[in-house]
Design a protein around this nucleic acid. Structure first.
Lengths: 92, 92
DNA sequence: TTGAGGGTTATCATATAAGATAACTGAAGG
DNA sequence: CCTTCAGTTATCTTATATGATAACCCTCAA
C-alpha cells in the first residue's frame, strides 16, 4: 500500500481529518506571523517589547507551540505594524 | 433583500471594494463570525453540534464576550463550511 | 577565545478561555 | 393561551494560554 493511500484512509477518519485540518491551519498561521515580523524587519525581542511581554513568549508563538487568542494575535500584528482581520474561505 | 446581499452587490463595484478593503480593519471579528454562520444558513445550535460544544458557548462567542483562541475560531469557521486564514493589513 | 545578539526550550504561577448545565427571553405557530 | 425554537445570560469547573524567569544553543565579529 502506498503512503498516499494510507494518508487517504487516515483522512477518512473524521477525528484524524480534524487534527489534520487543524495542523494545516496552524502552519499557515505561523508562516503569516513570521512574515509579518520579517517584513517589518524586527527581532523577536523588539516585538516582545512592543507587545509588553517576553521574547520567549514570542518564540513560543512563532514555533507553533501555542494556540493564541485573538487578542494575542492582534497585539503581535500591531507590534509588526499590521491590522488584523480574518479571511474566511469557502471550503470545497 | 438581505443585508448580506446588499453588501455583496456593493462590493461588486471596484471603487467601493477598494474603500472597503481600506476600512476592513474597522470591522469587528464578530461581524465576520456572524456572517459566516448566516451565510451558511445555520443556527447556533447546529454550529455548536458541529463544534462539539454547547449553543451557549457559541452565543458567547458571537456576542463578543470572549477572546477566542485560534483553534476555536477555526472550529467555528469549519463548522460553517469555511477555511480560515488571517489577513494582515499594513497599518498607516 | 570571548562576548553579544537572536532565537529556543523548560518550568512555574496565574489569568482566563472553554466546557457544561440551567434558567430565561422573545418570536412564531397551533 | 401553550409549545417549540433560536438565542442569551449566569455560574461553576476545568483546561490551557500567557507572563515571567532562567538556562541554553547558535553565529558572528572583535
Amino acid at each position: 500500500m502506498s503512503l498516499e493511500t494510507l494518508k487517504q484512509r487516515a483522512l477518512a477518519n473524521p477525528e484524524v481529518k480534524a487534527e489534520y485540518d487543524q495542523l494545516e491551519g496552524e502552519f499557515s498561521l505561523i508562516d503569516q506571523l513570521l512574515s509579518m515580523r520579517t517584513e517589518a524587519g524586527l527581532t523577536q525581542t523588539q516585538v516582545a517589547e512592543r507587545m509588553q511581554t517576553q521574547k520567549s513568549n514570542v518564540s513560543r508563538l512563532e514555533r507553533g507551540n501555542a494556540n493564541p487568542s485573538w487578542a494575542t494575535l492582534t497585539k503581535y500584528a500591531h507590534a509588526c505594524g499590521y491590522q488584523l482581520t480574518i479571511k474566511p474561505i469557502k471550503a470545497r
